[in-house]
């Protein structure tokens, strides 16, 4: 692990934002997530790492109930957001998703204008009273997405006409426009070149000031660079969870060690 420089970060302990207790996920008969307990802190970047198919995306999608759209998927256990069970019968997943935003692996802007992409969330949630307020939200979100300067002159050209990296930053801007408390990112840089990746990583670090960010990544360098906490999944189990520095330099579990040194994966 000599090539992996873990940026020294002061890991102040933060409030718990999301707490998962004994979470199990099944796709039909197959058991995809096995008894996972994890606490995700506020104003912290938490990275999920692990070999392909170990259930990172599955667990991430539980956190905003995107799994509800998959007919065969069944979730047991409790996931608490600010102490409230998000799988409670009274919870409308639509309301939950406004608070727990998501950025997907493949950039997926709507085939609409850049402005409309960002304005869509605020519009459906009624966050702006008038056009001026909406304009303001759009600008603020695009600035947070670190893409404002590139698109400010062509807000009304289609979002699908941007480059891959720009599209992903647009998607991040779209996600932050609804003022979520938590931002889930499933391999947000897997379709990006190193420059765009660096931009997105920088962005994630900035987002940490306001949000709790959970990022799934296959790049251990990336996890080391951007996260404060890291969770290592293997075959549906949460093997190890702790401060990023500790996971990468001094893992407790032999499986974690073999994964980060490249022996399983």
């Amino acid at each position: 692990m000599n090539d992996m420089t873990v940026v020294e970060k002061t890991v102040e302990t933060q409030r718990t934002k999301i707490a998962a207790r004994n979470v199990n996920v099944y796709y039909g008969d197959s058991h995809a997530i096995k008894d996972v307990n994890v606490e995700i802190e506020d104003k912290t970047v938490t990275a999920f790492i692990g070999p392909s198919g170990c259930g990172k995306s599955t667990f991430l999608r539980c956190l905003n109930r995107m799994n509800d759209t998959i007919g065969t998927c069944r979730v047991t256990g409790d996931i608490l957001l600010e102490g409230e069970d998000i799988y409670d019968k009274r919870v409308d997943p639509v309301q939950l998703r406004a608070q727990v935003g998501m950025v997907f692996q493949k950039p997926n802007p709507f085939p609409k204008s850049i402005y409309d992409n960002v304005a869509y969330g605020p519009r459906i949630h009624g966050l702006a009273k008038n056009k001026a307020e909406l304009d303001e939200i759009v600008e603020k979100s695009l600035r947070r997405g670190a893409i404002w300067n590139e698109v400010k002159d062509r807000l009304h050209s289609p979002g699908t006409g941007l480059s891959g990296g720009q599209q992903q930053r647009l998607c991040i801007a779209r996600a932050v426009a609804t003022e979520p408390e938590v931002l889930l990112m499933d391999e947000p840089c897997s379709a990006l070149d190193p420059i765009a990746t660096a931009q997105v990583e920088e962005l994630i670090d900035e987002l940490r000031e306001n949000y709790s960010v959970v990022i799934v990544t296959h790049s251990m360098q990336q996890a080391a660079r951007v996260s404060q906490k890291t969770a290592f999944f293997h075959l549906g189990n949460l093997v190890e969870f702790g401060p990023t520095g500790q996971i990468f330099t001094n893992p407790e579990d032999p499986r974690t060690e073999s994964y980060i040194t490249g022996r399983i994966g």
Partner: peptide, 11 residues
């Protein structure tokens, strides 16, 4: 992915 995108922002 378009459906996911819409659901993801809370539609």
């Amino acid at each position: 992915s378009i459906r996911d995108a819409a659901l993801g922002v809370g539609a």
